[in-house]
């Protein structure tokens, strides 16, 4: 008996054992391509803005999708799938920051975002970059998820693993600081 003939049975057994879930790989190549086209840019933007490292965002975006496809995810439609994807990406970011060899995210220049902005927007983009640089990584995550992606406090709790009750206060503090930085031109 070849490995190839065993594997589908093993995978089928796995999926059957988890009631209410199914492997994301049940998504065929074309379905995945469509989902990827709709979600990859916003996932990359989240990773790039929170990590302030576009190169890292490239790597983590790919890894997030591979893990998404390998995982047994809840089948509640595209909104839940996107949320699950952001959760995977958030965990990848956390793992990256925990690794001792990774460089400090505060040492990474913001220049790439400002350099690519149009003339009309370059000043506001640069100001946002400066303000984001002053924020702690967790605050950047919360702010981006709440105000750029429009996730509710409950959804942010699901994505970040933080207690739902603490999200409101954490977001309030982060938003107040961010607003002050933006009014001051991004300077602390």
């Amino acid at each position: 008996m070849s490995w190839e003939s065993i594997i589908p049975n093993v995978l089928a057994g796995e999926s059957q054992s988890l009631a209410g879930t199914a492997p994301a790989a049940a998504m065929d190549n074309e379905q995945f391509a469509a989902f990827y086209a709709r979600s990859a840019r916003s996932l990359w933007a989240y990773l790039a803005r929170v990590s302030r490292d576009p190169g890292l965002a490239d790597d983590l975006t790919q890894e997030a999708y591979v893990r998404f496809l390998c995982a047994d995810r809840p089948q509640d439609g595209e909104v839940a799938a996107r949320r699950y994807l952001f959760k995977i990406a958030t965990n990848l970011l956390r793992d990256h920051w925990r690794r001792p060899q990774s460089s400090s995210i505060d040492e990474i220049p913001e220049a790439v975002f400002a350099a690519t902005a149009s003339e009309d927007h370059s000043e506001s983009v640069a100001m946002l970059g400066l303000a984001m640089a002053q924020m702690r990584p967790r605050d950047r995550q919360l702010l981006w998820l709440a105000y750029a992606e429009g996730y509710s406090h409950h959804e942010i709790a699901q994505i970040t693993g933080l207690a739902s009750a603490s999200i409101r206060l954490l977001l309030f503090r982060a938003r107040r600081k961010m607003a002050r930085l933006l009014r001051d031109g991004g300077e602390a």
Binding site: R41, T61, L143
Partner: peptide, 24 residues
Amino acid sequence: VTGALQAARRHTVELPRLEPAGAI
């Protein structure tokens, strides 16, 4: 804050050169 982050999102989503979906 919402205005600034929404503007940043609109700008940032145009930046990545994504790997083909098939490869992933």
